[in-house]
Design a protein around this nucleic acid. Structure first.
Lengths: 146, 146
DNA sequence: ATGTGTGTCACCGACACAATTACAGTTATA
DNA sequence: TATAACTGTAATTGTGTCGGTGACACACAT
């Protein structure tokens, strides 16, 4: 199960933006903190901007900025913005409808899987980017890498 | 964040075994219902057998059998038996410790991610293979494919 | 006008999963 | 006991997704 790192990296990015309130941060600096390539960050920011969480200030001295107060961005919102695929994936090729089990397993399983996913999402809905940023800020003075 | 299809296929398989209580079911028949290759099923059954959920009757007329009452197999047990990796994956390469955010993001995020996963697992713990089998059986007479 | 930075595309390598083939080992049964 | 029917597992292949990388057009501050 190769789950993507996008969600964690997106929260990481938004936390930096929250702590740098108002100051644009370059994708290069974000990438330096995340330890990845600037293009990876920009592609991620593209999705976050579509969702209305960030904006970009183009040109020299520009960079990424929060478009909403961090206390109004729940981790669930971030999760949904950057993580597209289903949590549980069903059969790769559809089960055999000749068999009673094959014909019904997906419909029978669906409510349980949906409930499980909803429970997970309810937890993510209770934490905001502001919470994460505050937790981090509490651990020491912030300093952007060189 | 796609999970593998193993979990759903494992539940599918166990449901068939539950409905065929006592009669060994060949991997070929299970594969026919799931619409995959018998070896995929056998490899899955290997893990389920290690977890103590199934046994195999070797030789002619053999096949897979439940080793526990289906009411004693929660979907969470199945999930853990066949799905190995973490639900949320952290940064591929470790974040930059020069940055306060990079240094702390994983520790700060961990409790929230753990809580979310626990909530999901709590839901899966409440449903058993017997529940699924009953739901399916209720939808019509069972008949093994030719 | 120039330099700085974003947005996006295309491509590559790594990796996990599923499908498939092959074959050794076990067991019912004729 | 010989044979056929199964399982268990190893090895190989195909495929999809993700993350990393380079290239380049576009936007904007100065």
């Amino acid at each position: 199960m190769p789950t993507s790192t996008r969600f964690v990296v997106a929260v990481h990015t938004l936390a930096i933006l929250a702590i740098n309130e108002g100051r644009p941060v370059r994708s290069e600096d974000l990438a330096f903190s995340v330890n990845t390539n600037p293009t990876v960050i920009r592609s991620l920011l593209s999705g976050l901007a579509d969702a209305g969480f960030t904006t970009a200030q183009l040109g020299a001295g520009g960079g990424a900025l929060l478009a909403k107060k961090p206390s109004h961005i729940a981790l669930l919102d971030v999760y949904r913005a950057v993580e597209d695929s289903e949590l549980f994936s069903m059969h790769r090729s559809p089960p055999n409808s000749v068999c009673l089990v094959g014909r019904n397993i997906q419909n029978v399983l669906r409510p349980t899987l949906d409930k499980a996913q909803a429970a997970l999402e309810a937890e993510l809905a209770q934490v905001t980017v502001a919470d994460i940023a505050a937790d981090i800020a509490q651990r020491g003075d912030f300093r952007m890498p060189s």
